[in-house]
C-alpha cells in the first residue's frame, strides 16, 4: 500500500441515469508504466477528469501518495504531484517554448505568487527549463513561439511542461493523438526515456504505443474495467480481442 502513488478505489460517476464510470479500481506504484485502453465511448475521458479533479466522483475515492485527494481541486492535486498532458494541446501559444516551461518550474516552487522582483528565480527557472528541453530534444525550439511549432512538436512541449513540475505521477492523455505518423517516433522516444521514478499512466488508442511501453494494461469498456494484466495477457484475452481489438474500428 505504502509505495502506491496513485490509486482509484471503487470510482463511480453517473450523469443522470447514464453510468459513465462504474466500480473502477486500479493502483500505480512508483515508476509504474500503466496503460488504460478502451474503445471510443468507454469512459476514458471521464476517468481522466475524475483523476485530475475536473469531475467529482459520485462514489469512491482517489489517493495520491497515500492521501485521499477526492475532495481536492485540480490545482491542489497538481501541487501534490499529479501532472498531466492533454488530449488536445493545451499550451501557452503566444509564449516561447522556454518561457512556458520556465513558468511551470516557477509554479512548482511556489514562486508564481511573487508580486515583485523574482529576477534571480526566473533566471534559474529558465536555465532548468532549457536543460529539460535539451533532454527532450527541444533545445533548438526554445526561443520559438509555441503556436508556430508543428503540432507534433507542440505535443512534446506538453510533456516538457508536465515534467517541469517534477511530478510523482504523469498522466499522458492520448500523447500520440494528432501527431503525423512521420513524427510519432519522437513522442515514442520521449516516453521511453521518461524518468524511471515517475509513475506513468497512459490513456491511449494507439495500440502500438501501449504495447511498447506498458508493463500493465487496464481495459476499460462501457465505464468498467473489463480486465487488467500484462501486455501479453491482454493481447491473448479473447474478451479484449472481441470488444476492442476485434470488430470495432478505433482512432
Amino acid at each position: 500500500m505504502d509505495d502506491l502513488v496513485l490509486a482509484a478505489r471503487g470510482l463511480h460517476r453517473s450523469f443522470g441515469s447514464l453510468e459513465v464510470a462504474c466500480d473502477i479500481n486500479f493502483a500505480l506504484a512508483a515508476g509504474a508504466r500503466h496503460a488504460l485502453i478502451g474503445p471510443n465511448g468507454a469512459g476514458k475521458s471521464t476517468l481522466v477528469n475524475l483523476l485530475t479533479g475536473a469531475l467529482r466522483p459520485s462514489a469512491g475515492s482517489i489517493w495520491l501518495d497515500g492521501v485521499d485527494v477526492t475532495g481536492l481541486a485540480v490545482h491542489q492535486r497538481v501541487r501534490r504531484g499529479l501532472a498531466r498532458t492533454f488530449q488536445i494541446n493545451t499550451l501557452l501559444r503566444e509564449m516561447s517554448v522556454l518561457e512556458g516551461v520556465q513558468l511551470a518550474v516557477l509554479e512548482r516552487g511556489g514562486q508564481g505568487r511573487a508580486l515583485l522582483g523574482g529576477r534571480a528565480g526566473q533566471r534559474r527557472a529558465a536555465e532548468e527549463g532549457f536543460d529539460l528541453l535539451e533532454q527532450l530534444g527541444l533545445a533548438g525550439d526554445a526561443s520559438a513561439i509555441v503556436g508556430a511549432l508543428a503540432y507534433g512538436r507542440q505535443r512534446l512541449v506538453e510533456v516538457a511542461m508536465a515534467l517541469a513540475l517534477r511530478p510523482r505521477v504523469l498522466l499522458l492523455d492520448e500523447p500520440a493523438a494528432g501527431v503525423p505518423p512521420a513524427d510519432s517516433h519522437l513522442m515514442l522516444e520521449v516516453i521511453a526515456r521518461l524518468p524511471a521514478g515517475i509513475a506513468v499512466l497512459i490513456i491511449e488508442h494507439d495500440m502500438k504505443l501501449v504495447f511498447r511501453f506498458a508493463e500493465r494494461i487496464s481495459v476499460l469498456v462501457a465505464g468498467r474495467i473489463l480486465t487488467e494484466g500484462s501486455p501479453a495477457e491482454i493481447a491473448a484475452d479473447p474478451r479484449v480481442r472481441e470488444v476492442y481489438l476485434g470488430g470495432r474500428a478505433h482512432g
Binding site: 490545482h75 512556458g100 514562486q111
Partner: peptide
C-alpha cells in the same frame, strides 16, 4: 515578475495554468 507572467499565462490558457498547479 513571476506573478505578472502567470497572469499572461492565464490570459492565454487558464486550463494550462491550472495544470501547473495554479489557483
Amino acid at each position: 515578475a513571476p506573478f505578472g507572467r502567470s497572469l499572461v499565462g492565464i490570459r492565454q490558457n487558464p486550463a494550462r495554468m491550472q495544470a501547473m498547479g495554479v489557483s
